[in-house]
Design a protein around this nucleic acid. Structure first.
Lengths: 189, 189
DNA sequence: AAGCTCAATTGCCAAATGGCAAGAAATACA
DNA sequence: TGTATTTCTTGCCATTTGGCAATTGAGCTT
């Protein structure tokens, strides 16, 4: 919970009294490895702050093969923004790739906090656009790099994460085949 | 101006009286081909709605080579969201790649509209997150496709645009070399 | 501990893409 | 209009990456 508060403070001001309003509404939730926090076609009713574990945001093609758009891990929010905000069906899956623990807020709790905490909405707008712009930047940078550079950048940008996610998921995130990633790893030692 | 109103109505409700408040603050602006609407290191003081022309959002590497992150064209907003909102230096360039015409709103005008029009901020949050999520989806899809598929998808998704932007800029957007794009075009006829 | 299942590695070869450079075409400019 | 400059095309070849399949390895279950 303290980590969540520290995270929020990076984006705006929240005082002690307001933290209590937040604390009172946060619910602990566990999601087992392989289960989903959100599913395509369903409305995301909760926003989560990850206290432990890793999720991936992914989608499936007609053949049933999955593609990883990105990973979300400890001390970050995880949510399908448009689905949660407008209560419309989500377009993607959010899958726990390890056992995960979250603090979750229901849509109702979130709306209450909007009403009770001036600047609450602004805070989330800031977080959302900052995070999205950043992801877009990272992804579009990847497009102009070869496979090895993408992997080295990933190691740099997300230290330790490469060893916590299955190779084939990381490969699909990087836009290469599992074989290629395996060879790249070998070539780096 | 009417197109701007129609665009806004896609994301929320705005009434006739409110349109007049918007109309009163919109300024016409022309930007010549090759000039910038925003530059890295400078605060973006305006948000623009493109009535004519094409921009590209791009960055430069140490060697001075430019890379196109994406194109923005008629009937869309163009802005560095984080720079405009928080009045911080922009991280990228927004370059006119044709002569362009815009309706622009200064930060001050925009803030006034926030105060005068209930839901104005919500409207822009919606537009921003919708557009960003979409761009992220398109870009991350590109990563797992080969060059030809990326180009065909581009033709599909942005009809006519391929003929209005220089080949080398489109190539850097697609993450391939100008030579490769030229060959792909040839192979398609 | 044995067997099952799925993930990861590796070899072989084909296909895709890049690098470089020369020539052609388009565009800008005087 | 002619010339200069930039962009685009193309050929040649090297490098990267993918496809497929066999093998190895790791994790689970019994």
């Amino acid at each position: 919970m303290e980590k969540l508060f520290a995270y929020l403070l990076q984006f705006g001001h929240v005082n002690a009294q307001q933290f209590e309003l937040i604390r009172a509404r946060a619910k602990h939730k566990k999601i087992a490895k392989g289960a989903y926090f959100a599913e395509a076609g369903k409305v995301s009713a909760q926003i989560g702050y990850i206290t432990d574990g890793i999720f991936r945001v992914c989608y499936y093609d007609k053949a049933g093969d999955s593609f990883t758009r990105y990973f979300v891990y400890e001390n970050r929010f995880v949510v399908d923004v448009n689905s949660f905000r407008d209560e419309i069906p989500s377009a993607e899956y959010i899958e726990a790739i390890t056992d995960c623990q979250l603090l979750v807020f229901s849509k109702q709790d979130f709306t209450q906090l909007s009403a009770l905490i001036p600047g609450w909405d602004d805070l989330f707008v800031k977080i959302t656009s900052y995070v999205l712009e950043n992801k877009l930047k990272v992804t579009s940078n990847m497009l102009v790099q070869d496979a090895q550079k993408r992997y080295l950048n990933f190691l740099d940008h997300y230290p330790g994460l490469a060893n916590r996610v299955p190779l084939h998921m990381l490969a699909s995130y990087l836009g290469i085949t599992p074989s290629s990633l395996s060879r790249i790893r070998k070539s780096i030692h």
